[in-house]
Design a protein around this nucleic acid. Structure first.
Lengths: 144, 144
DNA sequence: GCAGTCGCAACGGTAATTGTTACGACCGAC
DNA sequence: GTCGGTCGTAACAATTACCGTTGCGACTGC
């Protein structure tokens, strides 16, 4: 499957901003977060831009610009982040319509769709169970 | 995320072979299955080849060659198929190692790993709950 | 006005999947 | 023993998503 790290990087960025703010800073720059995540600032800005549209973070421009949390980490779940990233479905149907003259071709998509919907629902419940505050707590609990 | 249809096509193929065998036929050809799934026979052979390595189907060569089930559909779950396809992890970590000098950079991967492992475990349980016989039953229950 | 940062477009690189062609290997029928 | 039908597999192009990078305009506190 796709090895996509967007959720991981987004969680990394939010945890970083949250910790930085706890240390008394107002805003964090994409440059700082990118250094911690070992990637490019534009990648961080792109991701945080999506989180901003979902109301999870805010950005300030001009001198002393940067990013801050729009909500407490305690009220933010991994599901909120996951949905902000608008991922496609976990499993896809056929790329072309199967043969509608065939019994299996006609019935397979409704059959699989119901299975897939149940699985995605369960996935969302699991993601909703974990807050970003939980993530940051686990991060800080890691032995050095 | 990745819109990959491998699990869907594999389930389609297995349901097709299972139904065909119930109708009294010995083997199904990749050509027939490809017609039903509206794709190329080589795609089907590649997929079924992976299922064969996992012991789910068998293939015969020569004249009258084709594919048959190695086990009853009732004993085959979507988890068996999923694992036969050896999908990568649902969520990936950073592509490059995060900054180990940073507290978040050090702790984020263990923290996310434990979340992701729980989710994959749940996914497997859901897939294990559905047999291919269930899928075929649902397929046949679809109104025409 | 200046400096620092975001916003965003553009482009190339990488990787996975899918579709396609080609061809050798196999084996039952004749 | 040849033939025809099918699998097994390699090779390649096309597509897609994501990632990394560069460049530059927009914004704002000083």
């Amino acid at each position: 499957m796709s090895a996509n790290s967007r959720l991981t990087i987004a969680a990394h960025a939010l945890a970083w901003i949250g910790l930085y703010q706890r240390q008394g800073h107002e805003v964090a720059t994409s440059e700082q977060i990118a250094t911690s995540a070992n990637t490019n600032p534009v990648v961080i800005r792109r991701l945080l831009g999506e989180l901003r549209r979902a109301g999870l973070v805010e950005s300030r421009r001009g001198v002393g610009a940067g990013w801050s949390l729009a909500r407490e980490l305690e009220s933010m779940t991994l599901l909120d982040v996951y949905e902000a990233l608008e991922p496609g479905p976990l499993f896809a149907m056929h790329r072309t319509t199967p043969d509608q003259e065939c019994v299996v071709g006609r019935g397979i998509q409704p059959a699989m769709r119901s299975v897939y919907e149940g699985i995605e629902q369960t996935l969302r419940q699991e993601l909703a169970r974990v807050t970003l505050a939980d993530v940051l707590r686990d991060v800080l609990a890691t032995p050095r």
